[in-house]
């Protein structure tokens, strides 16, 4: 088992290297330049040339690639052109900020999605099934940025204009003056800032999970052992939650790995709209600024997250499905 995961982990190294090489050449060959930030007629071309030399951009691309590869292999991500500090200093905070958001979103996605899916499966083709299907799909079919804007307009702007008792902040992770808050206030404050972005990020996913859960549940419900369980006279609740759910969960759990890249993609726009200082925003900013080392580092983290996500899914799969544990 462990050797299997080790092999998987080792197998993902060429994979990561491949995608990073691809990204390196795309971003370096593409038009644009990190010094375009000094797009200023008063700055002489000599100064720009100096800057390029200081950044090491005057060297040919293959030299830069091997230099990058060399330092990358030693675990050195380099120095961000835009933020002017080592990338190893930038990443931990940013990654943690995104993970917080993603964890909340994932928990929400799975709990909400599974509950809806179970109800739908148990009542297949009923009015409840149809109504839930439609509502889940309604949110699933909404562009996430559109949902985010609507959430802000309703729960922040309108809530404030109409004097609702609960008004949500539209940006960032904490309020101004957070450092003076008591512990209780801090928790509430963080929670309030988290809700809207997590909803915008997760609602679509929850609808997706609900659909899979419904399918998976339906498949299980029609199997013989469920019929047997019912025939034994077990209550419907026990049949569904104890016998059916456990097996229906197996394919759902593997989705966890699949949802990581989806959430990361979603976080690009959601983090920008909610001014959430996370990975998604960092990646886009780095691309737009041609901050090459930061693009490479964030790409690595993004791809790495996906690999880890898939591994996690495999582990979970083994946990819930005893059949493959013995292999």
């Amino acid at each position: 088992m462990i050797s299997y995961f080790l092999r998987r982990l080792l197998g993902s190294i060429p994979l990561l290297l491949g995608i990073l090489t691809l990204i390196f050449f795309i971003i370096n060959i593409a038009p644009g330049d990190p010094t375009a930030r000094y797009f200023n007629p008063n700055i002489s071309p000599e100064v720009i040339a100096q800057m390029r030399t200081n950044l090491g951009l005057d060297q040919p691309i293959h030299i830069r690639y091997f230099k990058w590869l060399g330092s990358f292999a030693q675990g050195d991500f380099g120095y961000s052109f835009g933020q002017l500090r080592p990338i190893s200093e930038i990443l931990p905070t940013v990654l943690w900020n995104t993970l917080q958001l993603m964890i909340v979103a994932v928990v929400m996605i799975f709990i909400l999605g599974m509950l809806i899916g179970i109800v739908q499966a148990v009542r297949q083709y009923s009015v409840v099934d149809n109504v839930l299907t439609f509502f889940a799909l309604f949110f699933y079919s909404m562009p996430s940025f559109w949902l985010a804007l609507m959430l802000i307009l309703i729960f922040s702007l309108k809530a404030s204009q109409w004097g609702w008792p609960i008004q949500f902040p539209a940006s960032q992770m904490t309020s101004v003056g957070y450092e003076f808050f008591s512990t209780g206030e801090r928790i509430t404050d963080r929670f309030m800032h988290m809700i809207l972005p997590a909803l915008a990020l997760g609602v679509g996913g929850a609808a997706g999970i609900a659909r899979y859960m419904r399918g998976s549940m339906l498949e299980v419900i029609h199997q013989d052992y469920i019929r047997t369980a019912r025939a034994k006279g077990l209550s419907e609740r026990i049949v569904i939650f104890k016998h059916a759910l456990r097996n229906a969960l197996i394919p759902i759990v593997t989705l966890l790995g699949l949802y990581l890249p989806i959430l990361l993609s979603g976080s690009v726009l959601v983090e920008t709209i909610f001014a959430w200082p996370g990975m998604g925003r960092l990646i886009v900013d780095a691309i737009f600024q041609r901050d090459y080392p930061l693009v490479m580092a964030t790409s690595f983290i993004a791809a790495g997250l996906v690999v880890v996500g898939n591994l996690v899914a495999d582990v979970l799969y083994a946990v819930v499905d005893p059949r493959i544990r013995t292999e």
Partner: peptide, 20 residues
């Protein structure tokens, strides 16, 4: 004086209107 980074124009506007 706190300078808060808010990249999205709609969000910035809403935060101004709600007094944040």
């Amino acid at each position: 004086v706190v300078f808060r980074v808010i990249p999205d124009p709609t969000t910035r506007l809403v935060e101004l209107q709600t007094g944040r």
